[in-house]
Amino acid sequence: MLDERKASILRAVVEEYIKTAQPVGSGHVVDAPGVSVSSATVRNEMAALETEGFLAQPHTSAGRIPTEKGYRYFVDALAQPSLDRGSAQQVRAFFDRAHGEIEQMLADTTRLLTGLTDYAAVVVGPPNDAGKVRSVQLVSLTPRVALLVAVLANGVVEKRTVELAEDTDEAVLLRAVNALSPAAIGEPFAVLSLVAPSHDPAVEAVLGRVRSVVGQGGADEGDHVFVNGASRISASFEAVETVRSVLTILEQQLVVVSLLRDVVDRGLNVAIGSETGMQPLADCALVVAPYTVDGERVGTVGVLGPTRMNYPQALAAVAVVGQRLGHRLSEG
């Protein structure tokens, strides 16, 4: 723990460096809230903070910059951050008009987060087996092709094309839906592959095809990952190799999912530098928040930026967007 004066000086250095990306000298700190001491005393305290590992001096004659340890102390000491009124209104308006299929909503949510924070945004959607079936329908496309549509409690809409062996009218499809619904509603989507046989031969012909297409799975099984604002990374780092490494990670869906899941599972909402567990992200910070649907954690939202990110803004944006997204999906 730091005493109050050292903590105030460290906070002033972090806040100034976040704004300017330039090493911070004592002159920028002496008038900061909670400091109220001479420049000489500030210099002595900054030297002590450097010795203790909270600050670093990139050049002998330069000011100080925060270390990973300094950022961590700053983040842990933050009060509960909140969005400014304009940003809060923007989030509220977005979710008031957010309707339609979940994939589009999640993609739009990443754009919202990027706009609020100016960092790369990531949203991991609910896995296909996370939601229970709310409703199921069979829609006739042609006499021999029907579309199976299941709306899940987590907002996912599952669709499967069902090719039929013979011409089938809508009355038969309706009887098939009546057979599917009691077994499926309130259960995972995969249970449709196990629905009991029907004594009606025409209906059983449809159910057999439904079991088959659901059992085969969809082309997009697995976690759905949406990324926006990757180009913002380029403006955050001077080293081309750093930019290239970070962009490569953002392009790898499995890596992104594992990264966010690991951070959340460790009970963190901010991972700074080495805390991400990935060497290419040594100069990055990740702010994450899980979101829940009907009380069950089903996905994660987050932003990725430089370690000198605006943590209060990022934490507030990710927390509010994650909460509102969960509420919107729970409403269906």
Rank of each mutant, 00 (worst) to 15 (best):
F95L: 11
D96K: 06
R97D: 08
A98W: 03
G100A: 04
E101G: 04
I102K: 07
M105Q: 14
M105L: 15
L106R: 06
A107E: 13
D108G: 03
R111F: 08
L112G: 02
L112H: 09
L113D: 06
G115I: 01
L116H: 07
T117Y: 00
T117E: 01
D118P: 00
Y119E: 13
Y119N: 11
A120N: 03
A121F: 08
V122W: 08
G125P: 03
G125D: 13
P126M: 13
D129C: 03
A130W: 11
K132S: 15
K132W: 10
V133Y: 04
R134I: 13
S135K: 10
S135V: 06
V136N: 00
L138C: 12
L138S: 12
L138D: 11
L138K: 09
L138E: 12
L138N: 12
V139R: 13
V139C: 01
S140I: 00
S140A: 14
L141T: 12
T142P: 02
P143T: 06
R144C: 01
A146I: 10
L147W: 08
L147T: 08
L148A: 04
L148F: 10
V149W: 05
V149N: 06
A150T: 09
L152E: 14
N154K: 07
G155S: 09
V156G: 00
V157K: 14
V157M: 14
R160P: 02
R160E: 06
T161H: 10
V162Y: 04
E163C: 00
A165R: 14
D167N: 14
T168I: 08
T168C: 10
D169E: 14
E170H: 09
A171I: 12
A171V: 14
L173P: 01
L173N: 03
L174P: 00
R175F: 11
R175W: 08
N178T: 11
L180Q: 00
A183C: 07
A183I: 03
G186F: 11
E187G: 02
F189C: 01
F189P: 02
V191T: 11
V191R: 08
V191C: 01
L192R: 02
L194T: 12
P197M: 09
P197G: 05
S198R: 06
H199T: 12
V203H: 05
A205S: 12
A205M: 03
V206H: 02
V206N: 06
V206L: 04
V206Y: 02
V206I: 05
G208D: 07
